[in-house]
Design a protein around this nucleic acid. Sequence first.
DNA 1: CCATTCGATGTTTACGTAAACAGTTCGCGT
DNA 2: ACGCGAACTGTTTACGTAAACATCGAATGG
Lengths: 344, 344
Amino acid sequence: MSSDRMTRPQAPRPASMLDVARLAGVSGQTVSRVTNGSEAVAADTRERVLAAMRTLGYRPNSAARALKSGRFQSIGVLMFSLENFGPVHVLEGVSNAATARDYSLDLVTIGDPSTGEITKALERLDQERVDGIVIVLEAHQILEHAIRFPTRIPSILVDSQQYDDRVSVNADQAQGAELAVRHLLELGHPTVWHVSGPVHRMNAASDRQLAWRRLLEAEGRPVPPPVLGDWSAESGYRAGLRLARDPSVTAVFAANDQMALGLMRALHECGRRVPDEVSVVGFDDSPDAAYYWPPLTTVREDFRAVGALAIELLLEAIDGERHEPGLRALPNTLIVRDSTAPYR
Amino acid sequence: MSSDRMTRPQAPRPASMLDVARLAGVSGQTVSRVTNGSEAVAADTRERVLAAMRTLGYRPNSAARALKSGRFQSIGVLMFSLENFGPVHVLEGVSNAATARDYSLDLVTIGDPSTGEITKALERLDQERVDGIVIVLEAHQILEHAIRFPTRIPSILVDSQQYDDRVSVNADQAQGAELAVRHLLELGHPTVWHVSGPVHRMNAASDRQLAWRRLLEAEGRPVPPPVLGDWSAESGYRAGLRLARDPSVTAVFAANDQMALGLMRALHECGRRVPDEVSVVGFDDSPDAAYYWPPLTTVREDFRAVGALAIELLLEAIDGERHEPGLRALPNTLIVRDSTAPYR
DNA sequence: CCATTCGATGTTTACGTAAACAGTTCGCGT
DNA sequence: ACGCGAACTGTTTACGTAAACATCGAATGG
């Protein structure tokens, strides 16, 4: 292979538009026209150019193109970790939608969510190698770190929060939480306990908790103190150990599936049967939820749709369209499995 | 808002290097020198240039830079779905490593793994907006679809397979499977059953199955017929329903955590206690595995390290280094939890 | 039969940057 | 004072593409 290196004529720089033009006996502009599919180029000329392209293995130089046009055909995505199921699926939705529109994706993940890291990441993205940015962060992170949004190019948030001056997209947290709580109440449970996510001033966890509380109050039910978790199965487990001691607990709404998983493990350990003694509902419908023990009743978020909508709005913004600021909330579906049963 | 558009002076095009140069009263080249941190520029000149940059909000144009230098400071990543835990974590490792080296990531996911889609995706990446490509695919997918690897730029595979002419990186499947099986044998079980992943001619599933078989044979144990799954919890569940009927089954090695999850659900349903009657080991150490019921003994893969090594090797290749073809296999760790117990 | 139009193609130019090369100034040794 | 090199800065050029404008021939219409 080193001989390969020595005999080969020094990586013959890739063919340029002009190389193709010369071979095809036309001008560079005509090659450009063929490349961009547009314009009227005589059929035989086009054929000749295409043949030359094939011969030379020509590929348009995207850097030159971007330089000339000012467009990158690329979307930046800023994400926290890929630990949690939700954001990863949003990413998948975003990726599919972007690919469908012929945009590529520039992914930046933030290892350590410090102000410095986030700012640096946004700087990176803002350095004009992308046409727009999708930010998958929660509001509290944005507030705590005093994040300054890019100004040069459009950006959109995937977050359940309502912003005065920005467009955001997410699943409808309140509607989802209501589905869960209402389901349990309809099964006859006197009230519903809640294992909450890490509540900050504004985030999905607080939205879910608030909706849970509101619905119980509206129905005139007692509102038990919520148990605080941090989205992890481990925190759900700890919450479960506390709830399992209280025999009045017959229905629990966990703010996500992983906490529901930990919760059920604790209930099992304490000998409280699910769903016979305690009904459990989760949130997210992660792929494994159907195979928890017992299979988990949960609220399915349409992450793909969230990602797709984010891209759609962002591309419109890139094209100069102005959107009304505010949250676009997408509805969720209740998936009933075996972890919930009528109150006895 | 339309008035906004009309009054504003046409989105004053972003400041260029020359704008900065004019304001600072220097040449463009000096600005370039300051930007690139290199060279000897007099301290006061540098200050003046930096001040001008701040005033104008100057950002180097990455397209122009890429055009001039022929480098993109960007790595392409080709992935199948983001459904499975493993690949997503590899992506995270890749992302972290790339960021640390000041490379950005161009992510392409393949919705439908048809030949056309894969080829199209590789074309996209090969269109020279990246300096190198990380391909996260399994060998059988590559073979079945007769994938042609990019030739213009270096690429590296994340896959457990040994290729004659390419460099690949992955966790050591055989070593991991041996950890699992040996653990069960050391607990005194007469033999170990296996719920396999979707075996193709060459992939992680077949590697794990082969290692399982080899070790049993080496130890002179009977080799029960492996039960075929497809990585999903659902397939583990179906496998479990079959294994649960057979009282001679006391130890099962599932080829991933999700199948172990489904397996344990089936065992529960059939009244076979884990680990008292049946011990179960998984593979991957997904975040939830510690909170399965019971907590799952499993093999932890260091996905981050895999991603990091892939980036390291790829960057070296970009810098012109030639690597010996072959597989770099990274060792795994056995995590013992409550789903395994001594044979009684 | 010439003017007009239009389709097809070519020429020029600019995008923003950085390498290569070309000064210019200054201090120092002689 | 002179020459010399080091330190600093400027000028020219090329990267590959596509918009704007220019040209040319042929077809159309009166």
